[in-house]
Amino acid sequence: MTAPSPPLAVSSWSLHRTLGLTFPNRPDHDVATPTPQPTYGEGRISLLDMPELVRGLGIDRVEICSFHIANRDPVYLAELRAALAASGITLQTLLVEYGDITNPATAERDLAWIGRWIETAAELGAEQARVIAGKAKHSAETLGRSVVGLRRLARQGETLGVRIVTENWFDFLSTPAEVHSLFYRLDGAVGLNGDFGNWSGPGKYEDLKAIFRIAICCHAKGDFSDGQLDEEDYANCLAAATAAGFRGPYTLIYDGSDPDEIANLAIERDFIRNYFA
């Protein structure tokens, strides 16, 4: 008997050309109503249309990047939450895309900014908020700052009903040893999102296997660098996660050069479903 196909989600990043516009909001530029920027073109849908588009792919979970949210006005957030509900879509994770809690010069400012986005995640009904554990090189000092900051964010998230997760990203968490060093000190307060695309090199699959035993979700980024999905790499990533005991959810991440994001998300979707068939 085969195992059931794992749950799938789609990140708004995988639709960045379809959405086109971004709404710049960072710790050093926290504005009530960001000016929309045609960062990836004018786009052909708004974020409010994304849930129905994802439902058309036969997927019922999404992740949304903070820079895709037009503003944090309660009326707009209520509209977005209603659009998700109308399409039967669960907001799995709000991806808080900026901030460095390991930088002593800006940590307090960034923690406060991230905290406001965790409040937004709660307003939207998100299950999780993904935050950055730190960008500095891993050291005893930066590790200490990250632990203190993540525990603070986790307490806020717990109060609001939002699970805080982070991922194997930037110099701070560039090896399995660094990931485990952090999570050993967090004692379950924060979850791990394992990302297929953040690591590379000859030890990539063993490194992924080493962290996926503690992962609770995954960014399943396919390699389309040659114009089509590298099926061997994708299968090896899935095998590493599965061997570690991970069973999903997998969030489809498409970042290739082909502008047909929907078609390439369908390729990733079908590959994962067939892999577990």
Rank of each mutant, 00 (worst) to 15 (best):
P74R: 10
P74F: 03
V75C: 11
Y76Q: 14
Y76I: 05
L77D: 07
A78E: 13
E79Q: 15
E79G: 07
A82H: 12
L84D: 02
A85R: 13
A85S: 14
A85Y: 09
G88H: 05
I89H: 08
Q92L: 14
T93S: 09
L94T: 07
L95R: 10
G99W: 03
G99C: 10
D100F: 04
T102S: 03
T106H: 04
A107T: 08
E108R: 09
R109Q: 13
I114E: 02
I114K: 00
I114L: 10
R116P: 11
A122M: 03
A122P: 03
A122N: 05
L124V: 05
A126P: 02
A126I: 06
E127L: 15
E127A: 10
Q128V: 06
Q128D: 01
A129D: 01
R130N: 07
R130L: 13
A136K: 14
A136I: 11
K137M: 11
K137E: 13
K137A: 12
E141G: 13
T142E: 02
L143M: 04
L143K: 02
R145F: 11
L150Y: 03
A154D: 07
A154R: 07
R155C: 14
Q156N: 08
G157L: 13
R163P: 08
T166M: 10
T166K: 11
W169R: 09
D171E: 09
S174W: 12
S174D: 10
